[in-house]
Design a protein around this nucleic acid. Structure first.
Lengths: 137, 137
DNA sequence: TATTTAATGCAACACTGTTGCAAAGTTTAA
DNA sequence: TTAAACTTTGCAACAGTGTTGCATTAAATA
């Protein structure tokens, strides 16, 4: 994805495309997997944790990324599809590889809707499957 | 559950029933919900974090409790059923109430088995549904 | 260009999870 | 029953994560 495309994407989501935001978002897209704040920090050594943190938050607030808590100890962020509104119907299973620590969106596996007992309201869901991924097996 | 029963339970799982362990396990059982290390610390002000931590670990290692990462920032522990081996077939959905922060085992909702793409190995899974529980609605 | 607004970097902080080590307690074996 | 061996507990410290207030810099607007 080119920088121009990234910038357009950010603008279309009402996020001003600053240099840092463009860079962070591009990194997420190009990596093809979910990245944590720490992962990103390592890639941009000169950039402040808080700056990356706030970039991620602005993406999250504007439905550009979704947080994935895969149990690794730090939340990872995965880019949303274009039409994602991060609600129940957009949710998919995430796979966490316990060998390499990579987290992948399993877009082909939507989270099944569950019939909750009376009185419970469904707002969001996380479905993480852990195991070993093909490249580690 | 009486102390005697707790002690027997611990022994049957090869965990020596010290005073602390009995207390911690009893608290988990009596609460009827999943508790975090911090939750337990509050209840036993005089007891060291690390002691409770290690008690929980020994329960976990011996399949007496299962950890639930509900996204609240701290892992909670829920007591297992007698016959639980904490493998895929014992897993159930957990419900996290975003109002009161309570986490409940939904034993009536087993985690559906998902057909993973070729090459992926299924080891364990977490399925957390967040929303509002009946007492908060 | 001057002024207002937004983004960044810095520093600090609370909290969670975790460990090494010493003290206290318990078990075992002589 | 006493000493030796082992286990559990408390204490202190630490790293990592997430988060915020504030000053500085950069960008947008009038």
């Amino acid at each position: 994805m080119t920088n121009k495309e990234i910038e357009k994407k950010l603008e279309s989501k009402n996020v001003k495309p600053t240099a840092m935001r463009t860079l962070v978002y591009k990194t997420l897209v190009d990596s093809g997997k979910a990245l944590s704040l720490a992962d990103l920090e390592i890639q941009f050594e000169k950039v402040e944790r808080s700056t990356i943190f706030r970039a991620l938050k602005s993406f999250e607030d504007n439905f550009m990324v979704h947080p994935v808590d895969d149990g690794s100890g730090s939340v990872k962020y995965a880019v949303c599809d274009d039409d994602c509104t991060c609600n129940i119907h957009d949710l998919h299973v995430h796979f966490y590889c316990t060998r390499c620590g990579r987290t992948r969106c399993m877009k082909e596996l939507p989270i099944p809707e569950m019939k909750l007992p009376a009185g419970y309201t469904y707002r969001k869901a996380q479905f993480i499957i852990s195991g070993v991924c093909p490249r580690c097996d």
